[in-house]
């Protein structure tokens, strides 16, 4: 029986990629470039965030233009709780996740009443609200944002060591991808993709589409919130720019570059965008120009993104 939506698990390539990622800190140390471990950690976190947006855009057809707000919710939750004496990552990261989920519930409950371009615009509006809120609230540090003196603690594991943090982020990303695969292969995932393709018809065969979309919106918000919590834990600082609408735009770019509606699309896009940015930024201050041209080329000539290109050649 043919199963068009099923996402298979290819054990050998998966194992290969995971092994390579696991060895990356070792390679960085051997090359004498320990800085790359922190950079790679940042890429992993963005991979998580972009993956959560891909769930919305690629699988749910919900083109959210305000995803940075959920990242911000998680980041500010951690940045507020740490000075208040909460030091354990076991509490802080779930709090970031809940902050993202809670805010996504509020935004989704209102926004999902609209469709199409109005949905794009209303999610943008909510993100702007959040942006101006943190920008003008002094308890949130206004312009300057908040800084943390320490990374959270994770029991016996010392997150202040960059390598340990890297492995923690890697574990979370892999768990998120595995969870997303399970979700998409489950009946809920089929329903979600049905809604993406024809929402009215889905209602007409009995699906509570609004509720299903809201559930997935909250799941994506939770993952984005966790990503924000990880980012602030890694960098030790957070500012309103994390919530700027251009950030939401960059997250969308990652999804499209990597391939919307492909399990690894978000992760691939995050790697591609951040690595290219890092590589060009060394040579020219005009690196956004290059990103812009690449993005334009992808939208015009390779709308399926990187994973689409790889698939076509395979």
């Amino acid at each position: 029986m043919r199963d068009t939506l099923y996402i298979p698990l290819r054990p050998w390539p998966t194992l290969g990629v995971v092994a390579a990622l696991a060895l990356l800190p070792l390679a960085a140390a051997t090359l004498g470039q320990p800085f790359y471990v922190v950079f790679a950690t940042r890429v992993l976190i963005y991979a998580l965030i972009a993956t959560s947006l891909n769930l919305l855009i690629g699988y749910g057809g919900m083109v959210s233009f305000g995803h940075a707000a959920f990242v911000g919710a998680g980041a500010y939750a951690v940045a507020m709780l740490m000075p208040a004496g909460v030091a354990s990552a076991w509490l802080l990261w779930p709090a970031a996740l809940l902050a993202g989920a809670g805010f996504a519930f509020l935004v989704g409950a209102v926004s999902l009443r609209t469709r199409g371009v109005y949905f794009i615009m209303i999610t943008l509006a909510f993100a702007q609200m959040a942006y101006y809120l943190v920008l003008s609230l002094r308890v949130l540090g206004s312009d300057d944002g908040l800084t943390l003196s320490n990374r959270p603690s994770l029991g016996l594991v010392d997150l202040n060591r960059d390598t340990t943090f890297y492995y923690a982020a890697l574990a979370i990303l892999l768990a998120a991808l595995a969870g997303m695969r399970v979700l998409l292969n489950a009946p809920l995932g089929r329903a979600l993709q049905g809604i993406r393709d024809n929402e009215t018809r889905m209602e007409a065969i009995g699906f509570a589409t609004y509720r299903l979309k809201l559930l997935v919106f909250v799941i994506a918000g939770a993952a984005a919130g966790l990503g924000g919590g990880l980012l602030v834990s890694l960098n030790g600082l957070v500012g309103p720019n994390l919530l700027n609408w251009t950030q939401s735009g960059l997250l969308m770019i990652m999804v499209i570059l990597g391939g919307a509606g492909r399990l690894l699309g978000g992760a691939l896009g995050a790697v591609l965008l951040l690595v290219v940015e890092e590589a060009i930024a060394e040579h020219t201050i005009h690196w956004p120009l290059v990103i812009g041209v690449v993005l334009l080329a992808v939208v015009l000539f390779a709308p399926q993104g990187l994973s689409g290109l790889m698939r076509r050649r395979a």
Partner: peptide, 20 residues
């Protein structure tokens, strides 16, 4: 006609069974 063109015929009907 309002069916789901990108999945199989059987999957279309399975979706309707699942919906109800």
């Amino acid at each position: 006609t309002s069916v789901f063109p990108n999945i199989t015929v059987l999957e279309n009907l399975a979706l309707a069974v699942q919906g109800a």
